[in-house]
């Protein structure tokens, strides 16, 4: 039958990619529906990040170096953190709503559609605030980044990895909702702490705290990037980062798809927005 043929030929290029592009196009169109809100929300986030950079400039005017970090490193740290979070939330904006969607039984509609579930859920929302974050990341690079081809590629790689760390860490935290029910509060706290730790130089943490940042709470892989990737390529750090990311992705997927068997749906009135 024609539909079965369609199911078989479903591939990344012919099936998933056009779907994702349409999803993103419509997400953006939905965001543009409220022009003023769109501009204010994105603008406020840009401003919020800039204020933090101003604080750090005041700090560095008194102490020019903190554990070997300079103001430019901090600015690039913010560029990677905000920019990475920004692209992940623009393209896969539901990643920090997983706990909510699971607890409220809102996965039903996605489960009845013939698309990879996680991709469908993640790509179905675009965060307006995140557009401001992403633009801030780019602006920081333009302002202080290394404007060579190598510098640009290293920055783009840092952005890419940072976004994936955000996405999969938050997905893992949110998937706890399958197991412990209402995990929205916990997932929110873990996410907020993660964001916070990605904006402080990893070298100011020592001992147990540092171990945590490079193991169960892997924010350190983002916050060391200005030194281990942007200043110069540190192969040891990059290999560890890639391995840690792979492990994190595996754990997150295991938690999500393992938990899905326990999904209990719900009967709340819902609509995608």
């Amino acid at each position: 039958m024609a539909v079965e043929k369609r199911a078989r030929r479903s591939s990344l290029l012919r099936g998933t990619l056009p779907f994702l592009l349409t999803c993103w196009k419509l997400n953006l169109a939905g965001a543009m529906e409220f022009r003023l809100s769109f501009l204010l929300t994105a603008g406020m986030m840009f401003l919020n990040n800039t204020i933090w950079i101003l604080f750090w400039s005041i700090f560095f005017s008194r102490f020019p170096s903190v554990a070997g970090w300079e103001l430019s490193d901090i600015m690039m740290l913010w560029a990677i953190s905000a920019g990475g979070y920004g692209w992940a939330s623009m393209l896969f904006g539901n990643f920090n709503r997983i706990a909510y969607l699971v607890a409220q039984g809102e996965l039903d509609v996605y489960l009845t559609q013939p698309k990879p579930l996680l991709l469908n859920v993640l790509a179905s929302r675009m965060s307006l605030m995140a557009i401001g974050d992403f633009l801030f990341g780019l602006a920081m690079y333009v302002y202080i980044g290394e404007h060579t081809l190598g510098g640009l590629l290293r920055f783009l790689l840092a952005l890419f990895l940072s976004g994936l760390f955000f996405l999969f860490f938050t997905l893992a935290a949110g998937s706890l909702a399958f197991f412990i029910g209402n995990a929205e509060g916990l997932a929110y706290q873990l996410f907020n702490s993660y964001v916070m730790f990605t904006t402080y130089p990893s070298d100011i943490f020592k001992g147990f705290a540092k171990t945590l940042l490079f193991t169960v709470f892997p924010a350190g892989f983002i916050s060391f990037m200005p030194i281990g990737l942007l200043r110069s390529w540190d192969t040891g750090f990059m290999v560890t980062t890639a391995a840690a990311l792979l492990l994190l992705v595996s754990v997150a997927l295991l938690l999500f798809y393992g938990g899905l068997r326990r999904y209990s749906s719900g009967n709340r009135m819902v609509m995608r927005s």
Binding site: V3, L26, E33, F34, D108, V109, T112, M271
Partner: peptide
Amino acid sequence: YRIGTVFGQKSQLWYH
């Protein structure tokens, strides 16, 4: 691919 679903309480439509 072969079934359709309509849940009176859960919409497939994009709200905005």
